[in-house]
Design a protein around this nucleic acid. Structure first.
Lengths: 245, 245
DNA sequence: CGAGGGTTTGAAGTGCATCAAATAGTGTGG
DNA sequence: CCACACTATTTGATGCACTTCAAACCCTCG
């Protein structure tokens, strides 16, 4: 456990907590604690009561649901700046999914009891949460569209594109990106099996002359990848409000 | 166009507008107008600016996205009490999807310009919107899980179960339900082709002794359907916060 | 009655999953 | 620094669920 005040700047730019005035944010952070979690550790499980919200400071956390027959669906894999449990707090339901650390993570916990008075005092915070949730819901609908309309290779291409830094979206130079976590987890995140992921990547490599070295991938021409991946999608790259880093 | 005051009671129970005091709701409704739209009519299109929010008073509206190559994904099909465009208003983006009337509908339009002052004056409304959005986001994640883990027949079974009135969830008597819209649209809503829908229904019919007469379906034992449909899903029926009627 | 959309049925094709096994990569203890 | 154990990733062969294409059927409505 450590004090969390020195994360203020990060939280201000990356999360809706930026809607709070400095003093209120500092007060809030003085009541929060950050903690390191190793890969594999659950932050909460499906069915748990929502006792606190958890802000990811670093690392990756996957949200999953497990069916009665034991298969696991990965809903999302989240990183710095994402607030876990917020929507469950507002929905008034227990956690409907598991949150499991996918890559060693630093997590800031805020007790749910602190939120109601904070919301009452700071309407701007409430609106900021509303905006965040609305954008996340849009992103989720886009995800659903992708599952319906794109094949495995297109979904993967789309994922790779979202790893390209915004400054290089229009670049005509080769771009090197690094996969942020396990290929197995990326596969699950994209709704496919590891074997399918591997074959999809191989086919993209062939078509687009990707250079692949473990988790490092060089895309010779971003524009060409865009053309192949965005064909059966309703948006045009860059299409995601929320990106993947 | 007609005045909308007489919808107050409906809106109070079915929508987050119920968080408003009577006077404020009535004022709001006096500035809103209801209008009938025939099947097929678009309420807004992908890319449109968000000029107003639209509350469904009756009928059905489908939300769809169209890919560059022309295929259509149905995100949801919505009915009485759902507020269209709210999340796009809060996200600050143009409409990312089409809203098209699927069955003749009565729609109440509220200009988006009315919302900011209303939210400023009524924090309870803001919180109610937050709750609604959070629940809808949960439902969407459940949908995503379903697409990942359930096969066509299971998704259909799940859909049929959500048409059973809550009072009869535990009943051991045969229940008759009526499909609320076209089988073709239900198929799209469930992420399958009409042919697949038809075969899935036929297989459920055989396994569960459904009686099928056009859009009227009799389920001899709800519990048996539950067992077959909820097997590869993380929830236990009744699992949906929001239901389908 | 006839036109046209919704629905069903059949036959064939396709993409992804599954199963199985090889290979590469990573961390551990000696 | 190496051998081992273990996991991640790739590759091949096969199966299955859903799609696609085609045609029949059915139902409603002018």
């Amino acid at each position: 456990m450590a004090s969390a005040i020195h994360y203020a700047a990060t939280l201000r730019t990356l999360t809706p907590l930026g809607a709070l005035p400095d003093a209120a944010l500092n007060t809030l952070l003085s009541q929060a604690h950050s903690h390191s979690y190793p890969k594999g550790q659950p932050l909460f499980n499906q069915g748990d009561a929502v006792g606190h919200v958890a802000i990811i400071l670093s690392g990756w956390v996957k949200l999953t649901r497990t069916s009665a027959s034991g298969t696991e669906a990965v809903l999302d894999v989240l990183s710095t700046g994402h607030i876990l449990g917020l929507q469950h707090f507002f929905a008034g339901t227990p956690h409907p999914c598991h949150a499991i650390v996918a890559e060693d993570a630093e997590i800031l916990s805020i007790s749910a009891t602190l939120l109601p008075p904070l919301l009452a005092q700071h309407p701007a915070l409430t609106l900021a949460f509303l905006q965040t949730l609305a954008q996340e819901k849009n992103a989720l609908e886009q995800e659903l569209e992708g599952r319906a309309l794109q094949n495995a290779a297109e979904r993967l291409g789309c994922f790779l594109l979202r790893l390209v830094p915004p400054a290089q979206h229009k670049s005509t130079q080769p771009i090197e990106i690094k996969l942020p976590f396990d290929k197995t987890l990326i596969a699950a995140r994209l709704g496919m099996k590891p074997e399918t992921f591997s074959r999809a990547l191989a086919s993209l490599k062939k078509e687009l002359n990707l250079r692949i070295n473990g988790s490092h991938i060089t895309i010779p021409r971003v524009g060409v990848l865009t053309k192949q991946s965005c064909a059966s999608c309703s948006g045009v790259f860059p299409c995601y409000q929320r990106n993947c880093r």
